[in-house]
């Protein structure tokens, strides 16, 4: 009895130890993020004003702004989202709900998993060869969006499949049992139930697209753009490219401008996350 009690107190200690370890890890991750935001804000906030948001880039730091980069990023993201989300979600629904488990499906599965791990620069080369050259879309925002769509499709497909798979089969059976067709079951029950999970994956994927620089440089997005793209065929630049450009300059002022740019980039990301949280909240209430 004594020994088992002894043993028990050691087990409690181990549980406590693990709890503190997890707490420590969480705190350090949050602290790092806080330090990053603090540094960026200290350097960049003084530069962040209406002039910064509404000016084109300039070689004079006090006149420089991110109008074209911000507009380019918004164009890129909305085009990428409207291409990649429908394709990704529908592919996931096909693979989960329709595809029979045979060799072809297995082959597709393995390839999607592998594609998710391909470095982004490779997608850039692919985009250059296919969209820029073969389809002659030039260095347009459409080329960029198509390349980004390729990059994030595997992430969207994998996350959406997980979400669709997590819908309990009892729900599907209930719907089939009242004479629903496959499409009615998917439309009325599977997709609504999977929506929060799908959204999470989509937001993660889009956030990745916002932050990516390498494939855009590869397909030849410009670093100095003194106009706002007005259509999908216009040339463009994007926030990460502008930030990269500023950090590579020797003057301290440009480094501070880069920090201001990073701050704006973070704000765009946070806003998107907020929208996702809101949609999830609405979905869970119904």
């Amino acid at each position: 009895m004594a020994s088992s009690a002894n043993n028990l107190s050691w087990r409690h200690k181990k549980a406590k130890l693990f709890q503190s370890f997890c707490l420590g890890v969480t705190v350090s991750a949050v602290t790092l993020l806080a330090i990053l935001i603090y540094q960026v804000s200290m350097l960049g906030l003084p530069w962040l004003d209406g002039q910064f948001l509404s000016s084109f880039p300039s070689r004079f730091p006090e006149k420089a702004g991110i109008k074209s980069a911000l507009a380019g990023t918004l164009w890129l993201v909305s085009l990428t989202a409207s291409i990649a989300i429908p394709i990704g979600v529908l592919a996931a629904v096909y693979l989960e709900e329709y595809a029979k488990p045979n060799r072809l499906t297995e082959f597709i599965n393995i390839n999607i998993a592998n594609l998710a791990g391909v470095p982004s620069i490779v997608y850039g080369i692919l985009g250059l060869a296919i969209f820029v050259r073969t389809f002659a879309l030039e260095r347009s925002v459409l080329s960029g969006a198509l390349t980004m769509s390729l990059l994030i499709l595997p992430v969207i497909i994998i996350a959406s499949r997980e979400a669709v798979r997590a819908v309990p089969s009892s729900l599907r059976q209930a719907a089939y049992a009242v004479g629903a067709t496959r499409w009615q079951v998917i439309r009325a029950h599977v997709l609504p139930s999977a929506l929060p999970g799908i959204l999470t994956g989509v937001i993660l994927a889009i956030s990745r697209a916002i932050g990516e620089t390498a494939p855009l440089i590869m397909i030849g997005a410009l670093t100095y753009v003194a106009f706002v793209p007005e259509g999908p065929m216009d040339e463009f630049t994007a926030l990460p490219i502008q930030i990269f450009n500023w950090t590579s300059r020797p003057q301290q002022e440009f480094h501070e401008l880069a920090s201001a740019g990073i701050f704006v980039l973070l704000c765009v990301l946070l806003m998107m996350n907020a929208v996702a949280v809101y949609i999830r909240y609405r979905g869970s209430r119904e």
Partner: peptide, 19 residues
């Protein structure tokens, strides 16, 4: 689908739609 229209089913665990 028509078969299931005319032959309904109640399952082991209650599985109402989340509606």
């Amino acid at each position: 689908v028509e078969v299931r229209l005319r032959i309904g089913m109640v399952f082991q665990r209650p599985n109402p739609f989340p509606k």
